[in-house]
Design a protein around this nucleic acid. Structure first.
Lengths: 243, 243
DNA sequence: CAAAACTGTGTCCGTCGGATACAGTGTATG
DNA sequence: CATACACTGTATCCGACGGACACAGTTTTG
């Protein structure tokens, strides 16, 4: 895995160190920021699958191979796009760990809705950039002083981030096929004529249709999770103060 | 979208209807089940990216194009693989909605660990097969009679499934790069020399190293979520009985 | 002014999913 | 039993993908 290892180090340098401008030769027509921005725009409009070297190069008025003067390969491109799309981590000014985490998750969700492909690129073994790590820092910071252990803090953050990601992906999928129908329509088609095989599901979808109300899956899950965390924090015996 | 729509119907037929054996012509050398099994095995061993038409065909001793006699395209192949890997939904014999859901999530997690690529294929707009829908049915059934509304039931299930998926992906990523190091190693490298920029994260990782203990991220998150759900069920006023 | 360094381009390769045309094979019908 | 037809697997071809490589043009340094 010498190749992968070397590529990882190159990715690390791209994400964490400011690029050193060369002294000789023609001025570069592009910048890493411009390439990343083009990639983000393309991914937002046509999906991550549409992000190809040729498409980005065309959007920038350059040949495909010109991009390889700036990045070693597509992995690095996606990493830069991810960093650009995540943006600077938000500063959570409110008091108390719970409002902070709730707001943090909501902002993360907003970013994931704006850039649905982020859910795909922020998964798996990879080099993590300063922006992404900054988001984690903010959430962890909110939990310092709650009395939770280190592992518990990280688990809470992972749970919240996982929930935001899952709901964002679900929302993106629902918006892709029809206007508003989420599980209801897609599943409803298959349930027709099979009420005996999936009785609970059919009953629940019927109930859902009768309720008719607005369904905020993100906030619902966040409230449950944070309720559970609050129970643990209280049990730890010092749930009052928080940075 | 005539193409996509037609392909969806074809996928639906493949997943939900038993194949009709042809009357004339040579006997088929393959079966859908064998193709799906080959795909599952390949994905388990070398990842979803290694699942190509040619690889599967080679594993089955057939030309790539022969597969297209059985499936319209790769989307259908992945759908069949997903159904095969998910398997029949478990029957939850224990009493009480909470133990049922906890066990359900644990089994889902086990499946996701055995087939890490399932986290990628069970996302987005797609045709859902009977096995996958059966899993949802089981979880929903556990929540019938808790007094939760339809939307709330579906949200709870989505939250639990999202958590199992998120932790499974995290575990798969951690296992891929080193033996046991999850966030610790990968993030630790980048934090070195930047303690001032990510103080909370550094402190938490230090605490984690000092604790040294075993970290069950799945159960931790499940307990928090189910604690929160229990609060809601109790508030609804009839949290005692459950089918 | 020449050498060196750097940029962008053109060409080529292997692999991917898939369309199409064709040859071989087995069954139903005359 | 012979023939037509339905069905199978194969061979060939295509466009798009990520990427390697050699080359021509441009700018700075000696």
């Amino acid at each position: 895995m010498t190749t992968a290892e070397g590529a990882s180090q190159e990715t690390y340098r791209l994400l964490w160190e400011s690029p050193t401008a060369p002294r000789r030769g023609p001025k570069p027509t592009l910048t890493l920021a411009a390439i990343a921005a083009a990639g983000v725009e393309l991914a937002d409009e046509e999906g991550l699958a549409a992000v190809t070297m040729q498409h980005i190069a065309a959007a920038l008025g350059v040949t495909k191979m010109a991009l390889y003067r700036y990045l070693p390969g597509k992995v690095e491109l996606v990493a830069l796009m991810t960093e650009a799309a995540m943006g600077e981590a938000p500063s959570l000014d409110m008091a108390g760990w719970r409002p902070k985490l709730h707001e943090w998750a909501r902002r993360l969700f907003a970013g994931l809705v704006r850039h649905p492909w982020l859910a795909d690129t922020t998964v798996g073994a990879r080099v993590i950039g300063p922006h992404e790590l900054g988001w984690t820092e903010q959430a962890v910071a909110a939990l310092i002083g709650t009395g939770l252990r280190g592992a518990e803090i990280l688990d809470v953050v992972a749970t919240l981030a996982g929930h935001a990601k899952a709901i964002a992906q679900q929302a993106a999928a629902a918006g892709a096929q029809t206007a508003e129908a989420g599980l209801t329509d897609a599943i409803g088609t298959m349930l027709r004529g099979r009420e005996d095989r999936f009785p609970a599901l059919v009953a629940t979808l019927d109930a859902l249709a009768r309720e008719g109300g607005q369904d905020d899956a993100l906030d619902f899950g966040l409230t449950r999770i944070l309720d559970g965390v609050e129970l643990l924090v209280t049990a730890r015996g010092q749930g009052s103060d928080a940075g």
